[in-house]
Write a protein that binds this DNA or RNA. Sequence first.
DNA 1: AAATTTAATACAACCGATTTCATATTTTTA
DNA 2: TAAAAATATGAAATCGGTTGTATTAAATTT
Lengths: 344, 344
Amino acid sequence: MEKEITIYDIAKDLGVSPTTVSRALNNHPAVKEKTKMRIFEAALKMGYQSNVFAANLRSKKTHNIGVIVPRLNSSFQSSVIAGMEKVATDAGFNLIISQSLESYDKEIANVHTMFNSRVDGLLVSLAANTEKIDHFKPFMKKGTPVLFFDRIAECEDCTGVTIDNIQAAYKATNHLIEQGCKKIVHVLGNIKINVYADRLKGYKYALLDKGLAFEDALVIYSDLNEEAGEAIVKKIMALKPLPDGLFVSNDACAASCIRHLKLEGIKIPEDIAVVGFNNDVISRLIEPNITTVNYPGFEMGEVAMKNLINHLEGQTIGILTNTNKITLRSELIIRDSSKRKKEQ
Amino acid sequence: MEKEITIYDIAKDLGVSPTTVSRALNNHPAVKEKTKMRIFEAALKMGYQSNVFAANLRSKKTHNIGVIVPRLNSSFQSSVIAGMEKVATDAGFNLIISQSLESYDKEIANVHTMFNSRVDGLLVSLAANTEKIDHFKPFMKKGTPVLFFDRIAECEDCTGVTIDNIQAAYKATNHLIEQGCKKIVHVLGNIKINVYADRLKGYKYALLDKGLAFEDALVIYSDLNEEAGEAIVKKIMALKPLPDGLFVSNDACAASCIRHLKLEGIKIPEDIAVVGFNNDVISRLIEPNITTVNYPGFEMGEVAMKNLINHLEGQTIGILTNTNKITLRSELIIRDSSKRKKEQ
DNA sequence: AAATTTAATACAACCGATTTCATATTTTTA
DNA sequence: TAAAAATATGAAATCGGTTGTATTAAATTT
């Protein structure tokens, strides 16, 4: 309730103008070093706190960056956010975070809120059923950069940060083939999402290269949550003959599948070898440990944020507009759920 | 880059004053319904977007609420945040989220940032090694409400939302005793955190009530992460005779313990019955399913946010200042990891 | 119909920092 | 030492809403 200290108070106190105080506090070169010092000290002593809103109002910059993810409670997504937060905080930016909960409508609402909050930039991982990206148009129109990560949009003038999902899925599938699998089931999410579409491609390419036939019946669509295993396993058990490999596009779901396969008396990896995706905590806790693709979440967050901020600060004019895809390295981590041969 | 539409533009267009436009857009009762309609339509047609900063500058309200959690990638914490987000969004507030990563220093930095961002209120779950809460004083001094949840501060004039950890731990321990356990190990986190201190109490009280002796050797301190199981199990295996019950203050860690116990040839629940805490996804995926305490994260988020917002909107003046603890219900969910008797 | 009350709108100051342009001061050069 | 250049500081307009007070228009009462 006490009156706020403003640059005017400092100015009056020191007998200088508010202009000089403002410049000094922003470390403007046109203020004498000695004057700066006096102002810094006075500001500190008087308990001055800059009013962001006055600054934002005038400078039209908020130093806020919006982040929209499908869900916060995903170990992958929260690693990404942790990486983003680190870079943003170091650069003096705040993070405004919201989740779409995989809903297109909520995503639209979130984008709206972000627009009204006038974030300087937006980082987005798309919801499952987002097909159009018209809701980002106000940003494009205004010139506010929008950068997609992981779940990126197929759009000419959009920049995105991802891993090479095709390659990762190729490696995963190939690994199963090398372990002797001849009939591999692939479980994936909504094919509208680039991530799953690409992994399906990688799976197909690997089969093709090794001379195995692709069958529609071996592709199972699922929402990949931790309860999905039961339904998936039911479908698997209906296949004759039984498959001997399983590539699931998500560790939590892979874990659920393993659980239900074991309940059916299937031995992992002897009867069916399993590979997951994401390197979630759960992949290390479940019995057997799940072979999985390590997804560099933290790094992805860092890279995405760093690019956005560089662009905002005009350090790399054009990088974001010319590049339209940044691809990060991913790796297959081989664990017991797929390890059949000893010479691995 | 196009010029922004302001209330002045709308005012000029309709031949009214900016005041009226402002009031109409804020649904002020002193504006005729017909005029409001005209203004709304014009605003929509002209693509008007309110400038939050001008509004904030004058009204000294940001409609931003700060949230600081130890980690975002905890299924519990993210449920809490989901609950908060829902309530906040419905009430027209934004969420600014940051994580302390269990570091006191980072928490201080986060609180600082929140203060500078002039959030209208702050919701905090404390970092593990936070003992003093002096860093919140600027908020108190300014009259900005700070509300703790889950990891609350022991402080006279602080409000907090939690579950009854003593009772929850009592029930969990009691359940193990009822399953025939005579020697129960309790694994918990930093005792400075109220959550763990209270659970330890509940554990002790249950032992006491059932005439079992409390032994310091049966209490194991850990950081409760998913790798901690190995070290914990090593300690457990060193106990002679082996314990027959295990109460772990966190599901991920309980899962890790179960994994390593099984590697040692221990049968769950026959040799050692296990109870976890939180009802994390993992408790339902691990073999056997983990008996656990359901922690109403989403609800906790809702309740905390609702209280804060009510206070901000002056609807329940005094509720927050008079109440200094809100306790939510929790329940024990019994699953296979502890179920020895059939008549359960 | 005049007087009084109430409803609707307008004026103008204000929130606090930023920034353009002008001015004062100091330093360098001729 | 005067003139030119460089440096440091200040005055005032500006960003775009909000809000207390004044004013006008409409409704109600006498």
